[in-house]
Design a binder for these strands. Structure first.
Lengths: 135, 135
DNA sequence: ATATTTGCAAACGTTTTGCATAGTG
DNA sequence: CACTATGCAAAACGTTTGCAAATAT
């Protein structure tokens, strides 16, 4: 946590109450969070920042390499950078859960890079289906 | 094509000029198309339907199982149902290209299904990176 | 002191909706 | 004829921006 604070300050960023609360939010939650979940979390901690502030802070944390943004079925989600994983998404209740797995895509990515002359930096993989409850 | 027309009529849908043009659009284009690309195609064929009409038609074609919708980096794309494939997306020029490959995810999907008690119906996989030109 | 952060209001791009009219089966 | 498809205008939705005031360093 303190390391992140230092990193932010070094890059010219300032540690504010909202930023602290946001960092807490991401350290307490391992899986991806929607905008609403994030602002809900902040409200529970008695912060009610303006939407634009939240978006801007999320953007900053992204630039500081603390979190990353994912777009799943047209909506944005934010997630602490960390262990490589994918997600399962329930078509009915929309619940998203993480799935840990080794990076089995590495070999395929090499093939694609060579074949298509395309430098692969990242990938998105979600499995869409029905969770236990909804099925 | 005629099979699709029949299927649509059977389900209570009506064959209109716009629907025909849209079907042409998807049979001429194998990879995913953005909304703008679709309406551009229609304009080239001298159709200028209202946006809402296009969205509604796309929705119908989706219900008739002719096309499917994909959300990539926050935008919607539409694609004819067909051969299983994935996409590479250039972060810079945003160009999207298809990548054909056998369904190597099958085994992994079985594992996830068992482990998470989750029925997998589909998956989304995109490789993000830089194309030859942009790199 | 100065640059960053914040709230507010307004704009933006994409997609959806309600309603009246036109067109298909 | 009955019901679907269409155009139009307006709304909804998530996100971004410009600006002036507040705050961190």
């Amino acid at each position: 946590m303190d390391i992140i604070f230092d990193k932010i300050r070094e890059s010219g960023g300032r540690i504010t109450a909202i930023k602290k609360a946001l960092l807490e939010c991401f350290s307490e939650n391992h899986c991806i969070l929607s905008f609403k979940e994030i602002s809900g979390f902040l409200e529970k901690k008695n912060f009610k920042p303006n939407r634009s502030t939240i978006y801007r802070e999320l953007d900053l944390l992204r630039k500081f390499n603390v979190i990353e943004k994912k777009e799943i079925s047209g909506k944005s989600f934010y997630e602490k950078k960390g262990k490589h994983h994918h997600h399962i998404v329930c078509v009915k209740c929309k619940k998203i859960e993480p799935v840990l797995m080794d990076n089995f895509l590495e070999k395929i990515e090499k093939d694609i890079s060579r074949e298509k002359d395309f430098l692969i930096l990242n990938h998105n993989l979600e499995f869409i289906g029905k969770c236990k409850k909804c099925n």
